[in-house]
């Protein structure tokens, strides 16, 4: 997994609440057995018309947002299906960070497994960053994971919370299966004890 330390980039505004993972990557693109290549279909049904032509009004089709690396969105981002294809599609497009007031649980976890930082900030701070993002490509937002800060293009700094373990893994690009396997003795011991206590499992 690619590590995430700092990022300064274009932020695309998506002022919608309850953006679900069906919206982020519709089901017809889940028939892949790979993780890559989904960026072209990110937000497919909002981004293309019935004939596959780009809808010019959609934010990621606008010239100033085609290179966006940050997405600013509304409440409960990533709700619905557990499909990890959603963060895969974001990443493949080039989005490394999402900023929203809140996230659905599974999507939030999936981001950290893929080197994407989902930042939760209070609505009024997201509103400031949304306005900032609406200014276009010249208004770059900066994110510093170590310092846990987001800085608007005007220099306004917002602090965010992130779980210490998730932060550690993201900063160092760590594979958590490897980390868990270091605790194999604990798992072995638990398994032996559970086999005694609940042999029917």
């Amino acid at each position: 997994m690619q590590e995430f330390t700092t990022l300064t980039g274009i932020a695309a505004p998506l002022p919608l609440i309850n953006v679900d993972t069906d919206m982020i990557i519709p089901k017809q693109f889940l028939k892949t057995i790979k993780r890559s290549g989904l960026g072209v279909n990110l937000f497919d049904e909002m981004r293309y018309d019935d004939h596959g032509n780009e809808i010019p009004d959609f934010v990621l089709n606008k010239p100033q947002y085609r290179e966006a690396e940050i997405l600013v969105a509304g409440d409960n981002f990533g709700c619905g299906s557990s499909r990890e294809h959603a963060p895969w599609a974001l990443l493949d497009f080039g989005i490394r960070c999402v900023i929203a007031p809140s996230y659905a649980d599974i999507f939030y976890n999936n981001c950290f497994k893929n080197g994407i930082l989902p930042i939760a900030l209070p609505q009024e701070q997201v509103d400031v960053l949304m306005k900032d993002a609406e200014k276009g490509a010249n208004a770059r937002i900066s994110v510093d994971l170590e310092a846990q800060t987001v800085t608007s293009s005007d220099g306004e700094v917002f602090s965010f919370e992130v779980d210490a373990f998730k932060k550690h893994c993201l900063l160092n690009g760590l594979d958590d299966i490897g980390l868990t396997m270091e605790k194999a003795a604990s798992i072995d011991a638990f398994e032996a004890q559970a086999a005694q206590a609940r042999p029917w499992v």
Binding site: P87, I106, K113, I177, T180
Partner: peptide, 21 residues
Amino acid sequence: AHGIGTSEVEHVLATQTLIQK
């Protein structure tokens, strides 16, 4: 019982555990 992403599917396949709070 709850849903997990594909990275977590791999984690459970390999370790029979899930990292949780």
